[in-house]
Computed example of a mutant assay.
Amino acid sequence: MGTPEHPETEANLVRPYTLTAGRTHTDVSLPLEAPVQTERRAQPNQWPVSDPRGLIVELCQVGPSIAEISARLDLPLGVARVLVGDLVASGYLRVRPTLTESSTGDERRELIGRTLRGLRALG
């Protein structure tokens, strides 16, 4: 469905749109740096092998940020946010709180490390 010069480009742009049904926002608060974790009842194999929702659930067993999910699965950031928001709303994932005034130094260093890993993966 792409152009003769770039046959895959157009197809790659259509797929994210279909994954989110054209939605670009989610009702779930999802800071880019917030760690996302799989809930115990979620099973990544309930989706077809190539479905990004199953890949997201599997990846979230290690608590990546939204930015890391986007980079590791090669999904546009907006698409990753919408899909993660859907999975959170459905009870498959949960968003861990980000830093507060009472956060420890270790928690702050962990956030900086996750943010740097996400930025490196995007680049």
Rank of each mutant, 00 (worst) to 15 (best):
M1S: 13
P4F: 10
P4S: 04
E5S: 10
E5G: 06
H6D: 07
H6F: 14
E8T: 13
T9L: 15
E10Y: 07
R15A: 15
R15C: 14
R15Y: 15
P16F: 11
P16L: 11
Y17H: 13
Y17V: 15
T18C: 08
T18A: 12
L19Q: 07
A21M: 06
G22N: 10
R23Q: 12
R23C: 08
H25Q: 13
T26L: 10
T26R: 06
D27F: 07
V28C: 11
L30G: 05
L30S: 02
L30W: 05
L30Y: 02
P31Y: 07
E33L: 00
A34Q: 04
P35N: 03
V36Q: 05
T38C: 08
R40D: 09
P44C: 03
P44G: 03
Q46H: 13
W47L: 08
R53L: 07
I56V: 15
V57E: 11
E58A: 10
E58Y: 05
E58M: 02
C60N: 12
Q61C: 03
Q61P: 00
Q61E: 05
V62R: 14
V62C: 04
V62G: 11
G63Q: 12
P64Q: 06
S65Q: 02
S65T: 15
I66N: 07
A67E: 15
I69N: 07
S70A: 15
R72K: 13
G78W: 07
A80G: 07
R81L: 12
V82S: 14
L83H: 02
G85V: 02
G85I: 03
G85W: 03
D86L: 09
A89W: 01
S90N: 09
G91W: 12
G91S: 09
Y92M: 06
Y92T: 14
V95H: 08
L99F: 01
T100I: 02
S102Y: 04
S103R: 01
G105L: 09
D106R: 06
R108S: 03
E110F: 01
E110L: 03
L111Q: 09
I112A: 10
I112K: 03
I112P: 00
G113R: 12
R114L: 09
R114M: 00
L116G: 00
R117D: 06
L119Y: 12
R120D: 08
A121E: 08
A121K: 03
G123E: 13
G123Q: 11
